[in-house]
Amino acid sequence: MRTTAYVALNTYRETVRDKVLYNLLLFALLMISSSYVLGKISVYQEIKIIKDLGLASISIFGMVIAIFIGIGLVSKEIDKRTLYSVLTKPVSRTQFLVGKYLGLCLTLFVNVCVMTLGLYLVLLVMAEPLDPMLLVAIFLIYMKLTVLVAVAILFSTFTTSILAGLFTGFIYVAGYFSADLKNFHTIVDSGIVPILTKGLYYLLPNFRNFDVKSAVVAGLPIEATQVGWAVLYAILYIVLLLVASTWIFQRRNLK
């Protein structure tokens, strides 16, 4: 436990040394504040646009950070062989992997907080009420990101950083359409296609479960049970992904 926590903290420190992170964060903040300008141009819906753009920025930049830094964490250590000296200390491969995962979640948490502050700052400047429901949407975005980090970790246990990045990006996109797969058999209903799409539907994460952006922006109420289910879903998915990652990683020859 102590070791895992130490690896996590160290991962956090490692990622905050990364210049890419600051560039991304800066870019995200620029985008959030540019919504201020956009809001000014469109006369009626300015607040809606600011909230929309702000939440979208948090989601997209969070995703980019999760993928770019997430895939590097494990595969970079394999490629650079810095792992040799770590895994020959009393650190199990499971502790290493889970520590890396938690460390990156911590990095993402700090980043999402900074972006959230940016968004609220823009709202403050606009002299708008600080809608607390935005926090619910952001919380669910964060939950989605933690699932995505677990996906990135899974891929980087068995493939190169570049492929892991591509695959994770693919899963991210697919995760938005996986709900459509459920009803795919109504369009193409022949042979193995329905079985395949059904299988994929259950396998792929469903990122729409975490998407309450439009409802929040429109000022619709969000039910506590919906949030609860989304959290439960995320935890279950993350545990499964981490178990699979550990299973693969423990069998991997570090050549």
Binding site: R17, K80, R81, T82, Y84, S85, T88
Partner: peptide, 11 residues
């Protein structure tokens, strides 16, 4: 253990 080419965190 001292690996053949010691790769450590160079930062």
């Amino acid at each position: 253990y001292l690996p053949e080419q010691p790769y450590f965190y160079d930062y």
